[in-house]
Simulated assay, not measured.
Amino acid sequence: MSLGEAGGRRHDSILNDPRVRSRAIQILLLILVAVFLYDIAANTAKNLASRNIASGWDFLSRSAGFDVVFSLVPFTSDSNYGRALLVGFLNTILVSALGIVFATVIGFLIGVMRLSRNWLASRAAALYIEFVRNVPLLLQIFIWYKLVLKPLPEARNAIKFGEIGALSNKGLTLPAPIFAEGAWMAPLGLLVAVIASVLIHGWAKKRQTETGQRFPSGLTALALLLLLPPVFFALAGWPVTFDYPVMGSFSFRGGATLVPEFIALLLALSIYTAAFIAEAVRAGIQAISHGQTEASRALGLRPGPTMRLVIIPQAMRVIIPPMTSQYLNLIKNSSLAVAIGYPDLVATGGTTLNQTGQAVEIVLVWMAVYLTISLLTSGFMNWFNTRVRLVER
């Protein structure tokens, strides 16, 4: 064999090595992406310079000069743009978190109803799913806002719920809690209740595996969550008072008001997403072998405990992946709040962009916030999915 033939074979073997080809393609792809990003950055800098737009984050400390209709933290027109973005971020987190909770509860109820043997319940659930899924979310937001909440009576003629609150076209007005020193005892009680519930659940599961005896860990956890925070709060001397709303000349004074924009967005997001979650629940339940139901009946379990203890736990491995996607869709769909004036991150960021011209910085904030929230949500749901999946022996 000549030296040239040996070198040629080594050359051919290198080109045919899948690891070498894979690394070469990845390096080439990274180079192309880097060149693409550099071209975008250079083009953006050139366009900003041609329009005399200064880049940077100094604008965050400047006075915003606009108000918002709803804020979880104190905000006035004298607050800076950074504070405005914080208000939008907190409002986005609030409506997304509550929307996920409500959509999950409604979705599970509708999904189970869809498979009910009761003809009326099953058809009502099917009608809900088909109607809600096929009406655009933006249209549903407008329906709740323009046709349901805005036509409500004015504050003077509000629908009152005794001393608890009142509902008008200004929103839902409720007493506002005012916390004094020692109010941290309530969250401490909640934390203790959560830790105790987790420990009791683990102990009850181990006890049932070893002895076959069940312990009502669910009811115990519920009792702890309901009783421990008030007990800790009582030990602190009930450090809370309430600011009750009082009717003024044109609207209520005092209290806390959930504005119609927030209520309409929350209802639309929850009801719309629940329809998709209901279908995921139905598919997960139907994925379980009918033999599981027959075995439960043979053991004397009633339909309710069978669904709760046998079917749903096994169906969760099918339900969680599509439900995670719906959670992410709900978070991103919350940006439609700008259509009705709810000051979420997109709305406050858009106003900031219009006044400062800092388009690149605002878009980066939007991208970073939504990407972070989505990754955290996806990561938590993936972790939860690993906890409930079936472990084969």
Results as ranks from 00 to 15, higher is better:
7 G>D: 06
12 D>Q: 12
16 N>M: 10
18 P>Y: 05
19 R>E: 15
21 R>M: 10
21 R>D: 12
21 R>N: 11
22 S>C: 02
22 S>H: 12
25 I>C: 08
29 L>K: 05
35 V>W: 06
38 Y>S: 09
50 S>E: 12
53 I>P: 02
54 A>G: 01
57 W>R: 08
69 V>M: 05
70 F>R: 00
71 S>K: 07
77 S>N: 12
81 Y>E: 09
82 G>Q: 08
83 R>S: 14
84 A>M: 11
85 L>K: 06
86 L>C: 04
97 A>I: 13
98 L>F: 15
101 V>N: 06
106 I>C: 04
106 I>P: 05
107 G>S: 02
110 I>Q: 05
112 V>F: 13
113 M>H: 04
113 M>G: 01
117 R>K: 14
118 N>W: 11
122 S>L: 09
123 R>Y: 12
129 I>C: 01
133 R>N: 12
144 W>T: 00
145 Y>K: 01
146 K>F: 15
147 L>P: 09
150 K>R: 15
158 A>F: 13
160 K>C: 09
165 G>Q: 02
166 A>D: 10
169 N>D: 15
172 L>Y: 08
175 P>R: 00
176 A>V: 02
178 I>L: 14
182 G>L: 02
187 P>F: 00
198 V>Y: 08
207 R>T: 13
211 T>Q: 10
212 G>W: 06
212 G>F: 06
227 L>E: 00
230 P>T: 00
231 V>W: 03
231 V>F: 04
232 F>S: 01
250 F>G: 05
251 S>W: 02
253 R>V: 06
255 G>C: 05
258 L>K: 00
259 V>W: 14
261 E>K: 01
262 F>K: 00
264 A>S: 15
268 A>T: 07
270 S>T: 10
270 S>P: 13
274 A>T: 07
280 A>F: 05
287 A>Q: 11
293 T>F: 05
295 A>D: 09
300 G>E: 14
302 R>H: 12
307 M>F: 05
312 I>L: 15
315 A>V: 08
319 I>S: 05
321 P>Y: 07
326 Q>H: 13
330 L>H: 03
330 L>K: 03
331 I>Y: 04
332 K>W: 13
337 A>F: 03
339 A>I: 14
340 I>K: 02
341 G>N: 04
342 Y>A: 00
343 P>S: 01
345 L>M: 13
345 L>N: 14
355 Q>H: 09
356 T>V: 11
372 T>N: 07
373 I>W: 13
380 F>A: 10
380 F>S: 10
383 W>Q: 12
384 F>H: 07
386 T>N: 15
388 V>F: 11
388 V>Y: 07
390 L>P: 09
